[in-house]
Simulated scan of single mutants.
Amino acid sequence: MDLNDRSILLTGAGSGIGRALALELARYSPRLALVGRRPGPLEEVAALVREKGGEAVVIPADLTAEGAPAQVVAAAREQLGGIDVLINNAGNVRAGRLEAIEESEVLAQIGLNLTAPILLTRAALPALRASGEGAVVNVSSGLGLLGMAFYATYGAAKAGIAHFGEALRRELHGEGVHVLNVFPGATDTPMMDSSDAQAQHGFDRESPEEVARATVEGLVAGELTVVRGESMVRMIAWNREDPAAVDRTLAAGKDELEKVVADHSSL
Rank of each mutant, 00 (worst) to 15 (best):
Ala56His: 04
Val57Phe: 09
Glu99Ser: 15
Ile236Met: 07
His201Lys: 07
Val227Asp: 06
Ala262Val: 10
Gln109Glu: 15
Arg50Ile: 06
Thr215Glu: 01
Ile17Phe: 11
Asn113Arg: 02
Val220Lys: 14
Ile110Gln: 08
Tyr154Ser: 05
Pro117Ala: 04
Thr225Trp: 04
Ala26Cys: 05
Leu23Cys: 05
Glu217Ala: 14
Glu230Cys: 12
Pro41Arg: 11
Leu143Pro: 00
Gln109Tyr: 12
Asn89Gln: 08
Ala123Asp: 10
Ala135Arg: 09
Leu224Ile: 06
Val93Met: 13
Gly253Gln: 04
Ala156Ile: 06
Leu125Arg: 04
Gly16Leu: 03
Val211Asp: 00
Leu143Tyr: 02
Tyr154Met: 07
Val177Thr: 10
Gly81Gln: 03
Arg37Ala: 08
Leu10Trp: 02
Val137Ala: 09
Gly36Phe: 04
Leu168Asp: 02
Gln79Gly: 13
Pro41Ser: 10
Gly81Pro: 00
Met1Ala: 15
Thr249Pro: 00
Ile59Val: 11
Ala252Glu: 14
Ala262Leu: 10
Ala245Leu: 12
Ser231Phe: 04
Pro69Leu: 10
Leu168Ile: 05
Val72Asp: 05
Ser104Met: 13
Pro69Glu: 07
Val226Glu: 00
Gly147Met: 11
Glu103Pro: 14
Asp196Asn: 03
Arg77Gln: 12
Leu48His: 01
Arg205Cys: 11
His163Asn: 08
Pro208Val: 12
Glu55Ala: 11
His178Val: 10
Ala127Cys: 12
Ala68Lys: 05
Val106Glu: 10
Leu3Val: 10
Leu180Cys: 05
Leu257Cys: 02
Val93Trp: 02
Ala221Gly: 09
Ile118Gly: 09
Phe203Asp: 01
Glu102Trp: 06
Gly222Val: 08
Asp255Gln: 13
Leu86Thr: 05
Asp196Phe: 03
Val216Met: 01
Gly96Phe: 13
Gly174Trp: 11
Glu223Phe: 03
Glu44Thr: 15
Thr225Val: 09
Leu107Arg: 15
Ile83Leu: 14
Ala197Cys: 07
Arg205Leu: 15
Ile83His: 12
Val226Met: 03
Leu145Pro: 00
Gly82Glu: 11
Arg37Leu: 12
Ser104Glu: 15
Val106Thr: 14
Leu10Ala: 04
Ala26Gln: 00
Val260Glu: 05
Ile83Ser: 11
Pro69Gln: 12
Gly53Pro: 00
Gly12Ile: 04
Ser266Cys: 08
Gly253Tyr: 02
Ala156Leu: 09
Met148Phe: 12
Ala130His: 10
Gly185Met: 04
Val220Tyr: 08
Phe203Ile: 03
Leu34Trp: 06
Ser104Asp: 15
Gly160Phe: 00
Ser231Tyr: 05
Gly229Trp: 01
Leu98His: 13
Thr225Ile: 03
His163Gly: 03
Gln198Asp: 15
Asn88Leu: 08
Val136Pro: 00
Gly14Gln: 01
Pro30Ile: 03
Gly36Trp: 02
Arg169Pro: 00
Leu145Gln: 04
Ser104Ile: 15
Glu256Leu: 14
Val227Trp: 07
